[in-house]
Design a protein around this nucleic acid. Structure first.
Lengths: 277, 277
DNA sequence: CCACGTTCGGAACGTATATTCTATCTTGAC
DNA sequence: GTCAAGATAGAATATACGTTCCGAACGTGG
């Protein structure tokens, strides 16, 4: 008797089983377990031999590993990894493609909508990849300890800071929206001190006022967190912490989908951190 | 000599090549071509034998098919199908899972960020599913023929109309943002006539002014397009065309990612339609 | 109707595969 | 230190795989 009852029926179940028994597994099997969870794609596509060499293990070890989890052999386990990839993809992209293929038949408007949906989708994806959790954490800390948070954004970025101001208001976090009425911005920012902090958003082509205001604040040692779309942005050089987010666009118009998600995450995180002390 | 120059390097190129040459392909190869594009997953995971029997073809035909597109054999072609699945999944969901697994180890902020990314993702997805292309087309037509577009939104929806106003400005479409300064909103709206149109956004809990303004406009036969989150919204009943979009939220705070994508698609579509006449 | 080139089906081939088996090694208890 | 139980490495094996090959079928132009 090698296995342990019935094998898991789907990938999730297998994952749980592996995590559960990971501690009590022999050395080489632990090695396989770690490799399997870290490189599921390799397991799905590779051959027993190639996987074994990648994981620095003998092919037979893979078979034993599979049998420990109730499979007949390695192949049975592999099928679960393949199933996972199959099911994952069924929804979103295929829909886009099918719409795209209907191309000429569809109205132009529907085409534009799909482009924006697609752009929003990839913006959110790139947000997921671009933001380093540690940096995010630092940004949250900086803003959370500020007395007043100054929100700097012009033109296309303004809706972001506007929404943040709304949310901060709901969350009882004091903030000052900069860029709303003409002229008094710099007067407002003159109040900012080291005890405060600022959050600036600017995408190419960068609004010169935003950059100037950011620099001014940085010069007076006001901690500055910023969101921009390039390392060469004027915001990047004067920020305490900055994030690079490239919003996918359609015909030059970005949907701000990624930025909005980021902004809300930041806003809520700050409020949460402040609430917990 | 069997192949035709160099084989495609990625799945998309292969797809194009197949579609391009589909007409001039022999009978059985056409059969394979159709099967390949319809069941890409089968090709990625199956064996030559299993695929052949599914497609009602001989295994050798698969090899010939691959060779027609410049591959050495069937395996080379299969790798492209596998690569596609690999790359599709590499970014988003795995990252979420890995962060989710780090759970307790991760900071709370990172967790919140991921929740918002996830919410944004599903908002955009539901946008793709919820918006009927024909309705969208009607909405675009209504707004495109308006002399002035009135944008009605309060509170959390305001950033959406704000961004639309910015984009409409860039696109040289006349619009009037309603809800910016206190008091004069109704005076502004008094100018609206049947030749104009309005776009209203309101999510639960609905701002009473937005609903009232929308009703007033509808009563004066001003065409009204609206974006809201329920069929029971006060906006739904008085709109010429309306869209239901449920934004996924985290802790009650929506990221507006889906709404933003929708708004920009609408804005650009209107401008485009107007430009073309 | 015939010759020719192309396409197809199916068997044959060599290879690579997953699995099994066994000798060796490790582990831990007494 | 010894022994037993389990785990591992690596060779052995039987299987299944992708590919190749060749004769038959098909369609075409003369």
């Amino acid at each position: 008797m090698t296995g342990s009852g019935l094998p898991p029926q789907d990938f999730e179940a297998l994952r749980m089983a592996i995590l559960e028994r990971k501690a009590e597994l022999p050395k080489r099997l632990t090695q396989v377990a770690a490799y399997a969870l870290d490189h599921p794609d390799e397991i799905a596509f590779g051959t027993a031999a190639s996987i074994a060499s990648s994981a620095q293990v003998q092919p037979s070890t893979l078979v034993r590993f599979a049998q420990h989890f109730g499979f007949d052999g390695f192949s049975g386990l592999q099928q679960l990894f393949r199933l996972r990839l199959r099911e994952r993809n069924s929804s979103y992209e295929d829909r886009l493609r099918s719409l795209e293929e209907g191309g000429p038949a569809l109205s132009e408007s529907a085409g534009i909508l799909n482009k924006f949906i697609s752009a929003a989708h990839s913006s959110v994806d790139s947000l997921a990849n671009a933001v380093d959790p540690e940096n995010f954490d630092r940004a949250v800390s900086i803003l959370a300890r500020a007395e007043t948070i100054y929100l700097i954004a012009k033109r296309r970025s303004y809706p972001i800071s506007n929404y943040m101001a709304y949310a901060f208001g709901k969350l009882k976090v004091r903030c000052q929206l900069v860029g709303t009425a003409a002229g008094i911005d710099d007067d407002l920012l003159a109040f900012a001190s080291e005890k405060d902090a600022a959050f600036a958003v600017s995408f190419s082509p960068y609004a010169s006022e935003s950059a100037a205001q950011a620099r001014a604040l940085a010069g007076r040692n006001v901690p500055l967190v910023s969101l921009t779309d390039s390392a060469f942005s004027p915001l990047a050089e004067c920020s305490t912490v900055w994030f690079e987010l490239v919003e996918a666009d359609h015909a030059g118009f970005r949907s701000l989908s990624g930025s909005m998600a980021f902004a809300m995450a930041l806003t809520v995180s700050v409020a949460e951190k402040r609430r917990r002390g």
